Simulated assay, not measured.
Amino acid sequence: MMEFHQELDARGLKCPLPILRCKKALADVAPGEILKVTATDPGSVKDFQAFCKQTGHEMLSVVENEDAPQKEFIFHIRKRLQ
């Protein structure tokens, strides 16, 4: 299990809301800290990969949790240093 500094629950939200909430949550995280995001939208995997590539944040991991009542995707994103 990866350590994180803040957590965002984006379950049940459809694109673009998980990305918008993530962007807002990252504003409250110090540079270099890690945000854990849990989402259920299958499109969020590609969305978060593109978001990180465009913004310079680092996608540390993407885990698919099939044991949850609804399939979940768990992302660990490190906020860029600048």
Rank of each mutant, 00 (worst) to 15 (best):
C15M: 12
C22K: 03
V37L: 04
L35Y: 01
P16M: 05
G32S: 02
P31A: 06
R21W: 10
F48C: 00
P16F: 09
D28Y: 10
D28E: 15
L17H: 11
A25T: 08
C15Q: 08
V37A: 09
P16W: 11
I34V: 15
G12R: 04
K24V: 04
L17W: 04
T38S: 13
V45K: 11
V29P: 00
R21F: 13
T38P: 01
A39K: 02
I19A: 08
L26S: 06
V45C: 10
I34F: 02
R21Y: 13
A39C: 12
A50Q: 12
K46Y: 11
G12H: 11
I19C: 05
L17S: 11
G43E: 12
L26D: 02
D41H: 08
G32R: 09
R21N: 14
R21P: 01
K14C: 01
Q49T: 05
A30D: 10
V45W: 01
S44N: 14
I19R: 04
K23N: 13
I34M: 03
L26P: 07
C22H: 01
A10G: 07
P18C: 05
P42M: 09
L13S: 02
L17D: 07
A10L: 09
L35P: 08
K14F: 15
P18D: 06
A10K: 06
R21S: 12
A27T: 07
L20C: 03
A39H: 04
P42Y: 10
G43N: 15
V45T: 06
P42R: 00
V45R: 11
T38A: 07
K23H: 14
L20E: 15
E33R: 12
L20H: 13
K14N: 11
P31Q: 02
K46R: 14
Q49S: 11
